[in-house]
Design a protein around this nucleic acid. Structure first.
Length: 760
DNA sequence: GTAACCGAACTTTTT
DNA sequence: GTTCGGTTAC
């Protein structure tokens, strides 16, 4: 995360007045605050990033603070990148070579690598500077293994739940040793935890939580080190402060020398309780209250002026969020008075919901709006499917944010496992992952035998592997021993090469020598798709080829572990594409037009929230985040019934909708008044324009516009609704609007061009 | 040991 | 609807 090359240039002096000229009064008060703690409560769209970046520019450019004394932390890589770019624009490139700006996890990982030796001395968990970082999937694999090894019932102690408990405990700054399990279940979970930590250590690995935890623990245990970093990082800045968890808060307190009364406490935090949506991950908006208590001298600045949305949107959002109890009241205002009212639509089910959304989008696009200015948001990823289908049918290009992430793909993880093993041969999760991928005759039995040997000699698996490769081993039959030997030879080769082979070449070696490439490219289309992902990974690796090889590999693996998003894959016409994303991933973004879908009880608020008031408040914040993403136009959509996990059930509209004042809503939008009618929504004729491309390619399927018109009485079949009988059929231009009574219940009007009814 | 099949379980959000 | 794990057949 640190810039690799410190450039010894003197940052320019900036003219304070011109720096402040673009800011409003509240923003200015924050940016030019003198030393001491500052708490900025920033409503959505109030320019918090601007405040953070100008603050850094102010410190360095006006107060003359050396950049290396500044530590700025964010939660996402994207935010870090954006801040760096913007600060550089103010101060000039190179001026910030030694500024530390990164994510919590990135900064901690870099710190731990640098100070790995001291962690050893402090008697903390041992790891060396080559440690690997285990992400959620790796963690889960390890927990599963721990559960199996301890002979614990996997049904009752589901790995996911146990991992959740472990992670929650770690986020509370607990260690396995001093954990006091509240229930018997947790007692067992604690046992798994202890084993899990042993396994981590044996793999020379740290999980995500450990990056924060070990950093904090090390600074607590090593006074001298703490003093060193306190005098280095004298100016702390924190973005999205409401999302910090206990460990992060403790770390910040530690670095800012909170307990030393005469210390300057130069800690500048920006946050918004109303946008705290990561409670389940340990985030605690109450850290804002703690901050006020721990730093009573803190200057508090409220940013209430909104530069994003119309007043109508802000009023609706405020009506929703005002019902939460624990918050600092804020009155967002904007100069963009008035604005279009919100549209509320009730769809019959998720299919119609999606079709309606797609139709509205088509209308917007027809009126000249760019697809890229439109976003469709939902609570759970599963909801994207119907929306995608509808957009595909209308040939509206879209991009899906954060679905199957690039680094979560199986082939990418396999390939990375080879590289991780080359880098850190003790990595047992990676070893287990690829020891038989591609299949090389090392099944469960061989794996058990290998583990037995390792256990017997009390050595890492990799050493046991070598032992077997070298001496054979009595208890293992020759065929298995040979397979293990061959695998060991493969790994040794890679390990030997890592010192002088650039990452991209090493990857190539791994994929070729292991036979992975041949195995993957089995001639199917899927195989080629997966291969394409590996080529993409190759180009990621190539970015690190310029480093000295060993460092290149290390840097690449770290970057890959901490950077989740690579949506560079399908670059291109970004401005045409509608964005589909969850409410969580929408935080921080803005779009002229926003659709919020699935606004029903059970979805938002999600059923998992039950009647836990804190959970419900968070669901409400989630809606608030969604509402405040919109600049000009907002659509609120819910469905009368929804299919979820196989079964279809009626849905009531979200209770949160009741809080939106009628004045904010456009009248008689959709069919909320007559919800139970079984007729389908009918697109207005302006909505649907049969482009030649559309009819041409769908004609290949079911001959919609051309010739074969459906007649009443005709039995038909629909991909979703199943069998039915045509009740009526009306021509609509080149298309046909067909009314069908479905055997499964329901009478619907459908456009043949996209309903694609087949004669049955 | 592997591949193919089946049923069961699970689905919130992710640095 | 998916993915995971277990069972069966080769």
């Amino acid at each position: 995360m640190d810039a690799p090359l410190p450039v010894p240039s003197i940052p320019p002096r900036l003219d304070p007045d011109s720096l402040l000229a673009t800011l409003n009064d509240a923003q200015r008060a924050a940016v030019e605050a003198p030393w001491g703690p500052v708490l900025v409560l920033a409503g959505p769209g109030s320019g918090k990033t601007r405040v953070l970046t100008q603050r850094i520019a102010w410190l360095v450019g006006v107060l003359g603070v050396p950049p290396w004394q500044v530590l700025a932390v964010t939660f996402t890589n994207k935010a870090a990148r954006e801040m760096r770019t913007r600060v550089e624009a103010l101060l000039g490139e190179g001026a910030l070579g030694r500024l530390t700006l990164g994510t919590f996890h990135g900064v901690c990982a870099a710190f731990l690598r640098r100070e790995a030796g001291r962690a050893h001395d402090a008697g903390l968990v041992a790891f060396d500077r080559d440690f690997v970082i285990y992400d959620g999937d790796d963690q889960l694999a390890l927990v599963k293994r721990a559960i199996k090894e301890l002979d614990i019932d996997e049904k009752q102690y589901r790995a996911r739940a146990v991992l959740g408990a472990i992670s929650a405990a770690k986020n509370e700054m607990l260690r396995a040793a001093d954990y006091r399990p509240p229930t018997y279940w947790h007692e067992i979970a604690a046992r798994v935890w202890a084993r899990y930590d042993q396994l981590l250590q044996a793999s020379n690995a740290l999980d995500f939580d450990d990056l924060l935890l070990q950093t904090t623990a090390l600074l607590q245990a090593d006074r001298e080190l703490l003093e060193r970093y306190r005098s280095r990082w004298q100016w702390l800045l924190v973005d999205e402060f409401q999302d910090t968890n206990s460990v992060q808060y403790t770390l910040l307190k530690l670095l800012s020398a909170a307990e030393v009364a005469e210390a300057p406490h130069n800690i500048f935090v920006v946050g918004d309780e109303d946008q705290s949506i990561y409670r389940w991950r340990g985030a605690d908006w109450r850290n804002i209250e703690r901050f006020r208590k721990d730093f009573p001298a803190a200057r508090v600045v409220l940013l209430e002026r909104n530069y994003r949305s119309t007043q109508v949107i802000l009023d609706a959002a405020r009506a929703v969020i005002d019902r939460n109890r624990h918050r600092t009241p804020k009155a967002l205002w904007t100069e963009r008075e008035g604005g279009a009212r919100l549209t509320l639509f009730e769809a019959y089910d998720e299919t119609e919901e999606a079709a309606w959304v797609a139709a509205q989008i088509a209308r917007h696009v027809e009126r000249g709006e760019q697809g890229g200015d439109i976003a469709v948001m939902y609570r759970t990823n599963a909801q994207s499917r119907a929306l995608e289908d509808a957009l595909v049918r209308r040939r509206i290009p879209y991009r899906l944010v954060g679905a199957t992430r690039f680094y979560d793909r199986r082939e990418v993880r396999d390939a990375l496992a080879y590289l991780r093993l080359a880098h850190n041969p003790r990595d047992e999760v990676s070893l287990a992952r690829v020891i038989n991928v591609p299949p090389r005759g090392i099944g469960p039995k061989a794996w058990e035998a290998l583990r037995a040997v390792a256990h017997e000699h009390d050595e890492p698996l990799i050493d046991a592997l070598r032992r077997i490769a070298e001496d054979g081993s009595g208890a293992i039959d020759t065929r298995t021993a040979r397979a293990l030997g061959a695998f060991h030879a493969l790994l040794s080769d890679l390990i030997a090469q890592r010192a002088d082979t650039p990452p991209s070449l090493l990857l190539d070696q791994a994929l070729t020598a292991s036979g992975y490439a041949t195995w993957l490219r089995d001639g199917t289309e899927e195989g080629e798709d997966r291969w394409a992902n590996l080529l993409e990974l190759g180009s990621v690796a190539a970015d690190f080829d310029a480093y000295p090889p060993r460092e290149g590999l290390s840097a690449m693996l770290e970057s890959v572990a901490l950077v989740a998003d690579v949506d560079s894959l399908d670059a291109g016409t970004a401005e045409e594409r509608v964005t589909l994303l969850t409410l969580h991933s929408a935080k921080g973004l803005e779009f002229p037009t926003v659709f919020l879908t699935g606004l029903e009880e059970g979805t938002l608020p999600h059923m998992r929230s039950g009647d836990d008031p804190d959970a419900l408040e968070e669901e409400r914040r989630l809606l608030y985040v969604g509402l405040t993403r919109a600049e000009r136009q907002l659509y609120l959509v819910h469905a009368f019934r929804r299919t979820f996990m196989g079964s279809t059930e009626p849905r009531e509209r979200s209770r949160f909708l009741d809080d939106i004042p009628l004045a904010a809503l456009a009248e008689s939008a959709g069919r909320s008044a007559a919800r139970a009618r079984e007729t389908s929504w009918k697109p207005s004729s302006t909505t649907w324009k049969p482009s030649t491309a559309a009819s041409a390619s769908s004609a290949a399927g079911a001959a919609p516009g051309g010739g074969e018109l459906l007649r009443p009485g005709q039995k038909v079949r629909h991909a979703t609704f199943g069998a039915g009988v045509v009740v009526a059929a009306v021509e609509r231009g080149a298309d046909q609007e067909v009314t069908v009574a479905f055997t499964g219940g329901g009478v619907r009007k459908l456009l043949q061009s996209f309903a694609k009814l087949e004669r049955a």
